[in-house]
Amino acid sequence: MSEGTIKKFMFVNRTAPYGTIYALESLEVVLITAAFDQDVSLVFMDDGVFQLKKGQQTKGIENKNFSPTYRALDGYDIEKLYVEEEALAARGLTEDDLLVDVTVMSRAELGKLMDEMDVVLSY
């Protein structure tokens, strides 16, 4: 029915992992959206940047460590990962702390990009 239509989907991730389920369930929507051959962008801002922190060890909280999935996004042709520059700095993080390659953007650039989207989902 919707075959052939390609829309620009943006996922705005603003929550840290594990404290709530949003990061994990957002990732599940991202993967399905890619399976529909849509144009997918991921934005990490506010505490959402913590989702990409290297070295997550979840054994002690008996939760699944889903951070390796971010590294697998490449295989789903999801390559547009954007991180808000100011959010990183505010959390004492740099690009080197992240487990995937991202494009670091200023808040103004992010806002402009958001405006160009067809569907914006936030978790």
Partner: peptide, 15 residues
């Protein structure tokens, strides 16, 4: 919560 602040920080003017 800082949600409104985040919105005001990032949203493109004119919205």
């Amino acid at each position: 919560r800082t949600t409104l602040e985040s919105c005001l920080r990032v949203a493109a003017p004119g919205g």
